[in-house]
Simulated scan of single mutants.
Amino acid sequence: MRICDLKQKEVINVKDCRRLGFVGDVDFDIQTGKITAIIVPGPGCIWGFLGREKEYVIPFCDICQIGDDIILVELKEKKEKE
């Protein structure tokens, strides 16, 4: 799977069935090449043009399943970066 494939998937929190948005970016470990987290822009953010309110930084270990259209995550608490 490529990073551009991840960006086309919607992220949904399985705890409250809330739609978080689409993957905007990924963090990865340079030494191992493994993805460490996915980043989902918060509401009202479109590629950073309309302001950068909040974004969800979701560790890879919190991803439950990656499907054809969606990514299911289990957020125990809000993990936002301001």
Rank of each mutant, 00 (worst) to 15 (best):
L72E: 11
Y56D: 09
D16I: 08
P43I: 09
C4H: 09
Y56M: 07
Q65A: 10
I3V: 15
F22P: 00
E53N: 12
D29M: 03
G51Q: 05
R18W: 00
W47H: 10
Y56L: 11
L6N: 00
G51S: 09
E82A: 11
V26I: 15
I38L: 11
A37E: 08
G44V: 02
V14K: 06
E77N: 13
R52N: 13
V73P: 01
F28E: 02
I63A: 08
P59L: 04
E10K: 13
L50N: 08
G21Y: 04
Q31K: 09
V14Y: 01
L75H: 01
I66P: 00
A37Y: 11
V14M: 07
V26C: 10
L75C: 09
I38M: 07
R52L: 12
G42F: 01
W47K: 13
D69E: 15
C45S: 13
K9G: 05
L72N: 08
I66L: 08
R19K: 14
Q65N: 07
D27G: 05
V57R: 14
P43W: 04
L50V: 12
C17F: 12
I63D: 06
D68V: 06
I70K: 13
E77V: 14
Q31A: 15
D25F: 06
L72R: 11
G67K: 14
E80F: 04
K81H: 09
L72M: 12
F28P: 03
V14D: 06
G42K: 06
A37N: 14
D25E: 07
G51P: 08
L75I: 05
D69N: 14
F49A: 14
K9C: 03
I46E: 07
G21A: 07
V40A: 05
F60L: 11
V23Y: 00
I46C: 05
K54Q: 07
V26Q: 04
T32V: 09
I63R: 01
G33K: 01
F49H: 13
K78S: 06
V57I: 15
D69H: 10
G48L: 06
R19D: 08
I3Y: 05
K81W: 09
E80Q: 14
F28L: 11
C17T: 08
R2S: 12
G51C: 10
R2D: 13
I70W: 02
G51E: 03
I70G: 00
T36V: 07
L72D: 04
D25L: 05
L20T: 05
E53F: 14
G21N: 10
P43R: 13
T36W: 10
T32E: 01
E10C: 07
R18K: 15
G44E: 05
D69S: 11
V40H: 01
G48V: 08
Q8G: 10
E82Q: 10
E80Y: 02
K34D: 11
C45A: 12
D27H: 08
V40D: 00
D27R: 13
P43E: 14
P59W: 09
V26L: 11
E74C: 12
Q65Y: 02
L72Y: 07
V73W: 03
F28Q: 03
L6Q: 00
P43G: 12
F60T: 14
C17M: 11
D27E: 15
V73G: 02
V23T: 01
L50D: 09
